[in-house]
Design a protein around this nucleic acid. Structure first.
Lengths: 208, 208
DNA sequence: GTTAGAATCTAATAGGCATTAGAAAAATAA
DNA sequence: TTATTTTTCTAATGCCTATTAGATTCTAAC
């Protein structure tokens, strides 16, 4: 209780190993799903035995929670980056495009973490679901605010329910991770068509 | 090898039990996912022991395959019903509405079977996935044809990719099963807004 | 080189799982 | 009733699982 009050540089190997474990866990969870992913497989992908994993994470659940937290943060951050690229006083159309671009980029470019979030939506223990709820809710609120902006600006038609619209867009985006294969259409192509169709519809003007 | 050539009425209890088992399996699979659904739970929901299940189904995989086959057939049939309600020479817009109504009705009104299909998309053994592929493909082809009709009629804009459009709509519909709670918005409300937004967009005419 | 702590491994626990073979029971037919 | 077939149960198989405690090895500071 005297000297050595300051303990600096606890840069341990531990932290790096944690990163590797989380990455491998995301990989395995996203491909196999929570239940059928085994700690043995995750550990061995990180070059260690299953038991050693418990030095870094208290349980499989805790590991999953951390993967999912990172996933949500990553999506949220990517959206924020896109928003920051806009000028101030951006109109709703630009904001929508930025949200779509951010969410889709995050999902499709780093699928390990984000696919874990999307695929394991309902199949994860309730305790995990509960732990994630606040962050999930916070991100969803941003989308709600976006729709409110659209209504406030008078861009979104009055007879379009903005809650449903939000769920339409997000469903469309999330489902992309189910079918998207890199090498096909570019993400930009998706973003532009999604924005265009949601704003203007697929129908040619002047028809009927 | 003489008389008794005709064996009629093999109406056994077996067939009814199979039905019950399939229904309960759909319920459990849809809620827990393939891997974490246990045959013990399915069997006990049908009032029997896990071992007895093997009198009716050769394996867990076979059981899952049959559930999924029924699910696809159910969705496909429901869509077909909606199409039959239309007059002959229906325009693309009506067909789109019928497809959306059929698919969504099937998904949301009988969620046990259909949610199994949607939730377990990537988390099921490859053998199961392979067994289902033909029926899945056949149903998807109907949607492709719908989009081709829209293009042929000149209703869908030239700069809208019809493959992407199909994936947008289906993603939007399928994702509904993730968030939809009976008691909220009616299915008809969803159908109408989905059709409207995909055809016309959410943007008010004349803005900008 | 000694020592302390960090990181990993070994080996065991306890439990769940799908699956199977044969006994038992239930339903049906004679 | 008896005989036969259909259906279910029992009990065991072997395998895989998450988790734990303690021994072991590795790392870094002195």
């Amino acid at each position: 209780m005297d000297a050595k009050i300051i303990k600096l540089k606890p840069i341990l190997k531990k932290d790096k190993t944690r990163e590797v474990l989380l990455d491998k866990a995301a990989q395995v969870f996203s491909r196999q799903g929570y239940q059928s992913a085994s700690l043995k497989e995750i550990a061995s992908a990180a070059g260690m035995k299953a038991g050693s994993l418990y030095y870094h994470f208290a349980s499989k659940e805790v590991l999953m929670i951390e993967v999912l937290e990172r996933s949500i943060k990553f999506i949220s951050d990517t959206v924020a980056e896109e928003i920051e690229k806009l000028d101030d006083d951006y109109p709703f159309e630009d904001a929508l495009n930025a949200y779509i671009r951010g969410h889709l980029t995050a999902i499709l470019k780093s699928p390990d973490y984000t696919t874990t979030t999307i695929r394991n939506n309902g199949q994860v223990p309730k305790s995990v679901q509960a732990a994630l709820h606040p962050k999930r809710e916070h991100y969803e609120q941003q989308w709600r605010n976006l729709m409110i902006q659209g209504k406030a600006e008078g861009v979104i038609r009055a007879d379009v329910d903005e809650q449903l619209l939000r769920l339409m867009v997000l469903g469309c985006l999330n489902w992309s991770s189910v079918w998207y294969k890199s090498g096909g259409a570019s993400i930009d192509t998706l973003v532009d068509q999604y924005t265009d169709v949601f704003l203007n519809g697929c129908r040619k003007q002047g028809v009927k």
